[in-house]
Design a protein around this nucleic acid. Structure first.
Lengths: 323, 323
DNA sequence: CGGCAGTGTCAAATCGATTTGACATCCGCT
DNA sequence: AGCGGATGTCAAATCGATTTGACACTGCCG
């Protein structure tokens, strides 16, 4: 079948006419080349693994990761690459599935979204397999990564509240084991300091990202003797938990309490009132990371090993001036 | 390397001592067999595709999907199988990724969860690739499938309300393009008829599964001149939308309105009040479907092509007697 | 007529792991 | 000594697609 192969793959010495004839026959016979055989001789599989980090509750649950996934998928599809999503991480001591797939050379590259044990990343990279981190980075390690400007985002959200005249601004942070948690906290505190406001640890609550916990946490903040008049939450889901808790206490938004989220999930624009939030360029993040991985697979050097994407403040209906 | 292969794969004529020695060396060299080469000679890849149907991509089916995934993953892992999740369906006219993977023999079987175009299923099965549907079935077609007893579940949820003395029982159905929608509707109507209650189309609302629509829909039902005193919703998320809408109108639950959901997501037990619901055996569904697929892959005949799993009514705090 | 470009056929090598059958040792037992 | 069982070595075939180089054929041009 050398002729057939050359015709289908656009190689040498085959006229257009023959090429088309072969293609027609192949279609009629429903012929599809055997992926493993191709992989073996060509040395590449044209597929990459997308790994949901341990902070992802589920690949599709998270509106955040769905948007990222769309960006990644678009670039891969355009490049003729296949994206395989691995299941959520298994028992901690065993290597996650992507490590096995990488060492068996089933894939050409790995894209890890979110929290991951650096040990597995290192082991995979040591075998020469390209890895790109997404929404996560290993500080001090030369692992290519694409992240959001979490510090800057938290800064601009908090500053917005300060500029509206609020002086007691609460913080709802996320307890996660990757840099996002610390970075947002930094941004919040820095904005307070720059605005000449004191940092009050009593106004800071750090919880796992979870619907119930968010409402409880917000309730605790609002029950303080001297409660905040505004709250910056590090994700939109947390911010929505805050608005729910406020409504349960009879507080009007934004009259009694201003709220800023971060993310700009689809839902944010249609809540009542629509949520003021710091938009994360989710699709761009996915696209950028996917392109970086493809470059690495093709052997190109990627220039900045760490890409930080800027955020954008989107002022909607949940923020107002301090009385 | 015949000896090495025989040692690692537990084949003939190799003493335990040599076996161990080979294993040690292999580990030190970080040797892992090339998946494609193995696939080629062995004729199987020990991996299967898990396909999220077009209804599984949304956030609300997600808690459901996660539980199913856990069941599937457990069985696969135990069997030494790898599960690859394909990304959400791409543009409608192109074949979804699992079809390509199947025709290139990258996988040994396909598990489709939820709504899927029957055309692709047929095309895949025609090539001899085992396919099992999960939470979906193609009526009249001999495609192996594992489903919930949706009719029975809706029946028991509705009957529970009738037994509590409710006579005007609303229905909140899902507008989806697979049997779930029709089956739950049937179960609801049948329960009414069996209880000697009239069917009133004005009490039936059928909407896409979506947070906003659920609240609006419930609002419409509760605004009727002669509103229902109880509502059966076909998913827990819809039921929670109902309770939210009721609370917004100052109705107490269950005093003024009884609500029953279906699913029993984790959240259902911790809401206030905890949700009465019809439990779907989600993990069992995943396990059963995974086992069926493995049987088909191993060439065994599966006996009932359609497995229907029973539901269980879980009475919690959102249902009470009719005044 | 000789040569050459354009096109197609064909056999052989290649990718990496596994399986098989032939052959070689070594050991213990009769 | 001779035999059989246990164990290990080795060369060769296999899986399916691709690539390469040798060769053949046609038709056109100088």
């Amino acid at each position: 079948m050398p002729t057939a192969s050359q015709a289908l793959n656009g190689r040498a010495r085959i006229s257009d006419q023959t090429r088309k004839r072969v293609a027609r026959v192949a279609r009629r016979l429903r012929y599809a080349p055997h992926a493993a055989a191709r992989r073996l001789i060509l040395g590449r599989s044209n597929s990459a693994a997308m790994v949901p980090g341990s902070n992802m509750t589920g690949m599709f649950s998270d509106l955040f990761y769905r948007a990222v996934l769309a960006g990644v998928g678009g670039v891969f599809e355009e490049a003729g690459y296949r994206m395989l999503i691995t299941p959520p991480l298994r028992s901690a001591s065993q290597p996650p599935q992507f490590v096995e797939m990488a060492s068996a050379r089933e894939i050409d590259g790995v894209l890890v979204a979110g929290a991951v044990d650096g040990r597995w990343v290192k082991q995979t990279m040591d075998t020469g397999m390209p890895v790109v981190l997404l929404d996560n980075h290993l500080p001090g390690k030369p692992v290519p990564a694409v992240v959001n400007d979490n510090t800057g985002g938290a800064y601009s959200g908090t500053r917005h509240l300060a500029e509206l005249g609020h002086t007691r601004i609460g913080f709802m942070g996320a307890a996660v084991d990757y840099p996002f948690g610390r970075e947002t906290h930094d941004g919040y505190r820095r904005a307070l300091t720059d605005a000449g406001l004191p940092v009050d640890p009593a106004l800071e609550i750090i919880i796992p990202i979870d619907a119930e916990r968010a409402r409880e946490g917000a309730g605790a903040l609002l029950s303080l003797a001297d409660p905040p008049s505004a709250i910056f939450a590090v994700t939109d889901m947390l911010a929505l938990g805050v608005t729910t808790a406020a409504r349960e206490r009879g507080l009007a938004i934004p009259a009694d309490l201003s709220v800023v989220g971060m993310d700009d999930i689809d839902l944010a624009a249609v809540t009542n009132p629509p949520l003021t939030t710091v938009r994360i360029a989710k699709e761009a993040m996915g696209r950028r990371a996917a392109r970086m991985l493809l470059d690495l697979i093709h052997g190109d050097d990627v220039d900045p090993r760490l890409v930080i994407l800027p955020t954008e403040l989107v002022v909607r209906g949940t923020t107002g001036g301090h009385r």
